[in-house]
Amino acid sequence: MPPRPRIAVYWTGGCGGCDVSFLELGPALLDVLAQIEIAFWPALVDTKRSDVEALAPRSIAATLVNGTLRTEENVEMVHLLREKSELVVAFGACAYQGGVPGLANLATRDEILRRMSGNGFRPSPPPGGEAEDAPPGLLPQAKSLADEITVDYVVPGCPPMPPLIGLLLGALLSGDLPAPGHVFAHDKALCEECPRTREERKLTKVVRPHELVPDPNVCLLDQGMICLGPVTRGGCGAACPKAGMPCTGCVGPTPNAGDPGLAMISALGSLARAGEEGPGAFAAEDRLLDALVDPLGTFYKYSLPAYVRTGKRSDR
């Protein structure tokens, strides 16, 4: 019997949801655990950095990293894991494109630290304090995993949905690996999976989710909700739109979409209508589009570090 593959799962700057997402596999998780050897998984078993350091290079079959890179320690750890691993997988939206913590890039590091110290956070050890007390240094900006190390595969989602995790585990355990760079999700947008009808293809108003009880059968975009479905990979089963919530893009853009925010701007600008198109409608169209507050946060909720260079560059 061949040795069971060694797997590591590591959590950088994230919420922990990705680790919990494995539980969604249900009883199947037990089968998986039986087929692998856990080399390092701080959230699940008592393993230390020193355990990893002791391993031979490339002796871990696959490391799944979740979380954005925010601290110097995050960076050290992912470099260490890269050295010890055959494959590295960006697991979840944060590792993939920066995730929700990446929205912090709208502020400079100094602004963040000032805000946090107001809440009692100590950015550096107090005079005479122990060095070990000091939290790890904060990076100037949040980064995605691929900003630091070579990433072999991506399992997207916030957190990854069981079908997508299943695709990765199936590939790892069977050894039938896709080409490097593969994203374990669909190439087509999730509209393909969405049962809602799309007939009146125009945007005549912009509403936020709490402002509307949507028609259960009609496309949310056509009802004025900013649904990022058309620009987001399928594979999630269009879970949010099915439940009446617009897609916020956690699985990331389709392979040819380019920058998802700019693609959505182009699509929404194309669809917006305030009556007959023409100069007479310009002012009303502008008002309609003004209802889209915070386009940056709407379009890049999970991907700001991947796409947006902000004007805030005081410490870059």
């Binding site: 125009k202 699509a267 669809l271």
Partner: peptide, 15 residues
């Protein structure tokens, strides 16, 4: 149309 990428979202039709 690249049929491998088109999800049938229909944004194009009214344009």
């Amino acid at each position: 149309v690249d049929e491998d990428l088109c999800s049938g979202c229909v944004v194009c039709v009214p344009q």
